[in-house]
Write a protein that binds this DNA or RNA. Structure first.
Length: 491
DNA sequence: TTTTGGGG
């Protein structure tokens, strides 16, 4: 544009910018923290970030950028990327400098990759006609890239007094968590997405929330027997084998039309200021208006720590066990296959072969039927006769157990001879005529379910063997079922 | 035009 005078911008080092409270400034910076656009109580969306440069490396400058639409605010892909702002307002908040931008007051931005040797074309900018990058701009960007390559930006990310791992979450307080997004589902008529997040650790067994009580007379069994996660098995197959997958409800962050800008599967994020609740005996993360979704680089220390710890877990027989089961593990159930590696229930659920055998460390959350009186049913060939005319030998155990470990819940069947072996000394019978057997069964089942005189149930960790099978050989995966075998409850 | 949120 030789015949038009080009506006010349001067860029202020951050150390100087923070001295110019009340003025509008232009600056370049390296993004050290970035939180996704989210709704505000006002008309605009807000995205926040911390930028640094060689003059102002720590703690960096907080930038708040408001805009009515997501596309009008900087969409930073990775920490360490370079950002340029024009006409951004310097302010002070509680003694700390901060900058606010808003297209309404003429603010504009351009974001470029942060890696050395990268090009000088912004991958996102606010100008309709494309923004200008001159030789002086390339110089600044190059200097920042070189400087950033020798200054890990990671020091800020992943540390706060609120930081928790998934194994330590509880309903009592708000917290932060660094985690990987495994899956984001659209579901329900409200089109509410659910995010499923993971950090390689195991959530503790949740106490049944009093507000989570079922209204039926059944003491909570129905809740406990609910299957987990509305995640298709094919999706779950892509999940890591171990570690809790925590569902996260972002709807509390929404404001009328806008939800938060959600990350996608595979991203690592730092969730800030989130809560937790218990639904059907399982933890669920909850975002609220004050929550934030910050991005993390795969190279971030927090991410590396998660991945390294997880690799260690995978490789160690002892660390593979649920993190909340007693060490060394003890079990009131006995299996004959103690040398066999323990599988997590997610591995059982996603195993590629449909007929297979596993050993698991689980808790028995519920039985169905819930009354041991109904544990035995007439065999098929006797079903036509009145129940009272049947011989004892005409009955068979048919019980469904809900098993839980930190990775999944699973319905398994305890049937026939496997059940007779399991209950040791309690043959199948018309239990309505077998008071003694019923008493023995009831005591065993109560111990399995962790029933106590008063207070919430707390099922003990037990080892058990499972085998998978199918009902229809033409559709083995669709009709896969699981049975307990090779497992005894002596005493 | 000047909010919103501003780490808790």
């Amino acid at each position: 544009m030789p015949n038009r005078e080009r506006r010349k911008y001067s860029y202020t080092p951050l150390a100087e910018a923070v001295m110019r409270v009340g003025q509008k400034v232009n600056f370049y910076g390296v993004v050290a923290e970035y939180e996704q656009p989210k709704p505000t109580r006002g008309r605009d969306l807000l995205c926040t970030m911390t930028v640094i440069d060689m003059s102002y490396n720590s703690p960096g400058l907080r930038v708040l950028f408001f805009a009515p639409e997501v596309d009008m605010m900087p969409r930073v892909r990775d920490l360490g990327d370079v950002i340029r702002f024009h006409r951004i307002q310097m302010k002070s908040h509680l003694g700390a400098p901060q900058a606010t931008g808003n297209p309404n007051m003429g603010s504009s931005f351009a974001v470029l990759r942060g890696c050395e040797g990268g090009d000088y074309v912004p991958y996102h900018d606010s100008s309709r006609s494309g923004c200008t990058v001159e030789a002086s701009d390339r110089n600044i960007v190059g200097l920042l890239r070189t400087w950033a390559s020798s200054h890990p930006i990671d020091t800020l990310a992943g540390t706060s007094k609120y930081m928790k791992q998934i194994k330590d979450v509880n309903v009592d307080s708000y917290f932060d968590v660094c985690c990987k997004i495994l899956f984001v589902s659209e579901q329900g008529a409200e089109n509410n997405a659910v995010m499923y997040v993971w950090d390689g650790t195991d959530a503790s067994p949740a106490c049944l929330d009093p507000s989570d009580q079922s209204e039926s007379g059944d003491p909570g069994q129905e809740l406990w027997s609910a299957k987990q996660l509305a995640v298709p098995v094919d999706v779950m197959r892509g999940f890591p084998a171990l570690g809790t997958v925590l569902p996260l409800d972002p709807s509390g962050m929404a404001d009328d039309d806008f939800g938060p800008q959600l990350p996608v599967a595979g991203d690592w994020v730092k969730l800030r200021n989130i809560g937790c609740r218990v639904r059907k005996g399982l933890y669920e993360g909850v975002l609220h208006h004050g929550s934030k979704i910050g991005i993390l680089s795969p190279s971030a220390q927090a991410v590396q720590n998660c991945e390294r710890a997880y690799e260690e877990r995978l490789a160690s027989d002892a660390l593979r066990l649920p993190q909340w089961c007693p060490q060394p593990p003890q079990s009131i159930l006995v299996t004959g296959y103690d040398h066999v590696k323990v599988s997590a229930l997610r591995e059982v659920l996603t195993y590629p072969e449909v007929t297979y055998k596993f050993r698991c460390m689980v808790r028995v959350m519920a039985t169905w039927p819930s009354d041991v009186l109904d544990f035995c049913v007439p065999k098929d060939d006797g079903a036509a006769q009145p129940r009272d005319h049947l011989e004892q030998g005409d009955f068979v155990f048919a019980v469904r157990l809900t098993l839980e470990d930190p990775t999944a819940r699973l319905h398994v069947f305890l049937y026939g001879e496997d059940a007779v072996e399991f209950f040791v000394g309690c043959p199948a019978a018309n239990l309505r005529h077998q008071g003694h057997t019923v008493g023995v069964l009831k005591r065993k089942v109560d111990r399995l379910l962790g029933v106590t005189e008063h207070g919430p149930r707390n099922p003990p960790w037990v080892t058990c063997c499972l085998k998978s099978y199918y009902l229809d050989k033409d559709h083995p995966r669709e009709t896969r079922r699981y049975r307990v075998f090779g497992t005894r409850f002596p005493g």
